[in-house]
Measured scan of single mutants.
Amino acid sequence: SKTSNTIRVFLPNKQRTVVNVRNGMSLHDCLMKALKVRG
């Protein structure tokens, strides 16, 4: 089974995003990807 960790990230202006960290990806990469999608 694939394991994925879901991390809630609290952003300024009362924004919130959820990042799924996959195996083999660093938290930083996942964060940058999530913020790019939002931006």
Rank of each mutant, 00 (worst) to 15 (best):
I7V: 10
K14M: 09
M32K: 09
D29A: 09
K2R: 11
K33E: 01
N13H: 04
L11P: 00
R16H: 13
R8P: 02
S1Q: 15
T3N: 10
H28R: 11
V21E: 00
K2Q: 15
T6V: 15
S1A: 06
L27R: 01
R22G: 07
V9A: 12
N23K: 10
M32R: 07
N13T: 14
S4C: 10
L35A: 06
F10T: 06
L11M: 07
N5Y: 08
L35Q: 00
G24Y: 06
T17N: 02
S26C: 12
N20H: 12
V18D: 00
C30G: 07
L31A: 06
L27Q: 00
T17P: 00
S4G: 09
I7S: 01
S1P: 15
G24D: 08
L11V: 02
N23H: 09
K36R: 10
G39S: 13
R16C: 05
K33R: 08
K33N: 03
K33Q: 03
K14R: 08
R22C: 10
L31Q: 01
R8G: 03
L35P: 00
T6S: 11
F10S: 09
R38C: 00
G24S: 14
H28S: 08
R8C: 05
V21F: 12
V9K: 06
C30R: 03
R22D: 04
K14T: 06
T3I: 13
N5V: 15
N20E: 06
G24V: 14
K36S: 06
M32V: 10
R38G: 00
S4I: 10
N13D: 09
H28Q: 14
N5I: 07
S4T: 15
T6K: 04
L31V: 07
S1I: 09
V18I: 13
N5T: 13
M25K: 13
K36M: 12
K2G: 14
N23Y: 11
L27M: 11
K33I: 01
G39D: 15
C30S: 11
S1C: 13
V19F: 12
V9L: 02
V21M: 03
K14I: 08
Q15H: 01
G39E: 04
K33L: 06
T3P: 15
R22P: 11
G39C: 13
V18F: 03
L31R: 00
S4N: 12
I7P: 03
L31P: 00
T17S: 13
T6A: 08
V19A: 09
D29N: 12
N20D: 04
K2N: 14
A34T: 03
F10V: 02
N23C: 06
V21A: 11
G24A: 12
Q15E: 15
K36Q: 14
L35M: 11
R16P: 01
N5D: 09
R22F: 03
L35R: 00
P12L: 01
L27P: 00
V9M: 02
K2V: 03
V18A: 08
I7D: 06
Q15P: 01
T3S: 09
S4D: 15
N23D: 11
I7F: 08
P12A: 03
R38H: 00
V21L: 07
M32S: 07
D29R: 06
Q15K: 02
D29G: 11
S1R: 13
N13C: 13
M32I: 11
R22L: 13
F10H: 09
V18T: 09
N20S: 07
R8H: 04
Q15L: 02
S1L: 10
M25V: 13
S4V: 06
A34V: 02
V9T: 14
H28C: 13
I7M: 04
L31T: 06
T6L: 11
S1N: 15
R38P: 01
F10I: 03
K2E: 08
V19I: 12
V37W: 14
S1H: 14
L27K: 03
S1T: 14
K36D: 06
N13S: 09
D29H: 14
K14E: 07
H28Y: 12
K14W: 06
V18E: 03
S1G: 12
V19L: 13
I7L: 10
S26I: 15
N23T: 11
R8S: 04
M25R: 08
K14N: 15
H28N: 08
N13I: 05
H28D: 13
M25T: 12
N13G: 04
H28L: 11
P12S: 01
N20K: 13
F10C: 04
A34P: 14
M32T: 11
N20T: 10
K36N: 15
T6P: 05
S26R: 07
G24R: 10
S26N: 10
P12Q: 02
V18L: 03
P12R: 02
R38L: 02
N23I: 08
T17I: 01
K36I: 09
V19T: 15
N5K: 14
V37G: 03
L11R: 01
N23S: 10
V9E: 00
V18G: 02
V37E: 01
L31M: 08
R22H: 11
V19E: 06
M32A: 04
H28P: 01
Q15R: 01
R8L: 08
M25E: 06
R38Y: 06
S26T: 15
T6R: 10
V37M: 14
F10Y: 09
S26H: 06
P12T: 02
K36E: 05
R22N: 14
K2M: 12
P12M: 06
G39R: 04
K2T: 08
S26D: 04
K36T: 08
V37L: 10
K14Q: 06
R16S: 05
T6M: 12
N20Y: 12
D29Y: 11
G39A: 07
I7N: 00
T17R: 06
N5H: 09
A34G: 10
V37A: 07
D29V: 09
R22S: 08
R38Q: 06
S4R: 14
G24C: 13
R38S: 01
N5S: 15
D29E: 07
V19G: 01
L35V: 04
M25L: 09
N20I: 12
C30W: 02
T17F: 06
M25I: 10
C30F: 04
A34E: 03
M32L: 13
R16L: 04
V21S: 06
A34S: 12
N13K: 07
L11Q: 00
G39V: 02
R16G: 04
V21I: 06
V19D: 00
S26G: 07
K33T: 02
I7T: 03
K33G: 02
T3A: 15
V21G: 11
L27V: 15
F10L: 05
K33D: 03
C30Y: 02
T17A: 04
K14S: 06
K33M: 06
F10P: 07
C30I: 07
N5G: 14
N13Y: 08
V9G: 00
